[in-house]
Design a protein around this nucleic acid. Structure first.
Length: 352
DNA sequence: AACGCGGGGAC
DNA sequence: GTCCCAGCGTT
């Protein structure tokens, strides 16, 4: 019979009998390290985030180490992981904790959720794992597990849907072992109730699972909105001599904010001719194009970006003036964080 | 309430 | 190709 604790006790039984998922931050009692792991894992698979967690823990073992690091160093360590606002907010909050909170991490969900970069999910995770507070996490795993077992076809990416899943999650969480419960439901979603081809044959909920009983596993959960991709065309200008190169920092509220790149001209559509003119206008002086790199196509979640790198013939770096640009020794390039495509170009051309 | 934000892996 | 991933901040 489905009594009040049916869900949580079934889940905790599964966790103790069948869950062998190991991760370095599991059981961690230092709130800084749990916080760090949770930020890294936002919208990121464990396997992808793991090496980053180990590198951050090694380089910044405490919140104070992180707080006194230059932002460029933090971005450099985050390079390649994506969603770079996570790194900026992580650093911002580390400085806030070190200076305003005397290095002490807040101890309640209410106070934790106020921190920049920490929302309902991360606050619930930290509050329950570290402080034993009864706050249910709601992430992609939890939504999928609950949608299937309880047959919820309300779209989860709406205000109404979010509220419904949060309330159900909070109703189901274990009174006595909230932290273990939160960990278990996410492990369960990540290993058994997976998005495609869930392992219903070994699922302890199967006989009560609405989705399984009605064979609707692939239909649940329901998302309301579909992602629309936009196309963008980036034309990068390689301005270098034997020892220096010109780079710029992305500062607009756009993709890759906080990272560095080469001077770049963006076009709403592919420029098929007169690229020389466009580049000359961009640089404010007549230039002759020496050659082009191969086109680099990058598939991101919300946009497709095609980038071409343009080599300029006989350019004199002294006479180039680009707003916000800086000339740096080639040797120093490894200290800057670049978007994946720029990094790849630099590596393929032996500049990095 | 709606939108923007990376990169990688599974299918 | 599409979808999803230990979500969040901004507008």
């Amino acid at each position: 019979m489905k009594d009040k604790t049916w869900f949580s006790s079934t889940l905790l039984d599964w966790n103790r009998q069948s869950n062998d998922r190991q991760m370095p931050w599991k059981g961690e009692k230092d709130p800084y390290l749990v916080w760090l792991s949770e930020i890294i894992l936002q919208q990121t698979r464990v396997e992808q985030g793991l090496p980053y967690f180990l590198r951050f823990k090694e380089k910044y073992p405490t919140v104070k180490h992180l707080a006194k690091a230059p932002e460029d160093d933090v971005m450099r360590l985050w390079q390649g992981l994506g969603y770079y606002s996570r790194a900026r907010n992580l650093h911002h909050t580390a400085k806030h904790i070190a200076s305003e909170l005397k290095g002490i991490f807040p101890a309640t969900y209410h106070d934790i959720v106020k921190l920049k970069g920490i929302g309902p999910y991360t606050a619930a995770a930290i509050a329950s794992f570290i402080f034993g507070e009864k706050q249910a996490v709601v992430d992609g795993n939890v939504i999928r597990v609950l949608a299937r077992i309880y047959g919820i076809d309300l779209p989860f990416d709406t205000t109404e849907g979010k509220k419904a899943f949060s309330e159900l999650a909070q109703k189901l969480i274990s009174d006595t072992h909230p932290g273990e419960y939160n960990q278990a439901i996410m492990d369960f979603g990540a290993t058994v109730c997976v998005p495609a081809n869930p392992k219903c044959d070994i699922c302890p909920f199967a006989d009560k699972c609405v989705a399984y009983q009605e064979n609707r596993q692939e239909e649940l959960p329901v998302r309301a909105k579909r992602i629309t991709k936009k196309e963008r065309f980036f034309y990068y200008v390689v301005l270098k001599d034997n020892k220096e190169i010109i780079i710029t920092k992305r500062s607009a509220n756009d993709i890759w904010k906080g990272l560095y790149e080469l001077p770049m001209l963006e076009s709403p559509k592919a420029i098929r001719k007169n690229i020389g003119e466009a580049v000359s206008t961009f640089l404010g002086k007549k230039v002759k194009i020496e050659s082009y790199s191969k086109p680099y196509t990058q598939q991101l979640t919300h946009q497709t970006i095609q980038s071409v790198f343009i080599f300029i013939d006989g350019e004199d770096l002294q006479n180039v003036h680009i707003e916000g640009a800086q000339k740096v020794p080639l040797k120093k390039l490894p200290t800057f964080a670049f978007p994946k495509v720029v990094h790849l170009f630099l590596v393929e051309n032996s500049l990095l």
